[in-house]
Amino acid sequence: MTKERHCPLVDLHVSSPNAMRLNRLMRMSRRDTLMTGMAGMGVLATGTAVSAEPATGADPELERFMKVSERLTDRPSLDPRIGQALYERILQSGPERKAQLGRLADLLAGGTYEDASAFAKAAEQSDPAFKDVIHDLMSGWYRGVANGKVVVYRSALMFDITKDAIYPKTYAAGGPFYWTTQPPEVDRPTGAPALSPSKFDVEPT
């Protein structure tokens, strides 16, 4: 008989259809248990150290990264947990990134910029290499992707700013046939690009 074999890239199983359904149910109930357990822990730990936010104060460079991110997104605050994950991934995209991010933060700290566009323009003028660094930041926060990896999917800002109209793929929650209704109108934008354009290659299917 054929030896059962585990694929190196994907989990395999050879269950019957009923066993597969049962597996799913068991997975769900296990997750529910875990969530209940975590909630319980939270109750027990109320008033002590349990917090959704990591201790960002531990890394001043990360705090500077968050400040640059807030300026470039025109947002007063961003999720520090996502920021930490993006920062770590962006650093891995090249040995020069850490120093570049530091200099970008210096530029921000040393001037006054009325919005993201003004800061981005000034950055590219001071060093053309900042364009790629800013691209990394924009892709990270808006697409949830850094250094070729998905850091967050549903929480990417591109879905936050479109949530009145559309769901991220695989996360629809409007119920059957929600799509027949009229979505919101969108005015033609008036803003201008801040950076010089880059080549855009559509990735192959």
């Binding site: 470039l72 997104t73 025109d74 919005d115 993201a116 566009s117 800061f119 981005a120 800013i134 691209h135 924009m138 892709s139 808006y142 697409r143 800002l157 591109m158 700013i161 479109t162 109209a165 559309i166 979505p183 969108v186 005015d187 033609r188 934008p189 008036t190 803003g191 201008a192 690009p193 801040a194 950076l195 010089s196 354009p197 880059s198 080549k199 855009f200």
Partner: peptide, 23 residues
């Protein structure tokens, strides 16, 4: 989002572009 970033938008201007292009 990819298209708008490649065009050089950031911040609020980027968000307006994303909404317009996506729709």
């Amino acid at each position: 989002t990819q298209l708008a970033i490649s065009k050089g938008y950031v911040g609020k201007a980027l968000e307006e572009q994303i909404r317009y292009l996506a729709s």
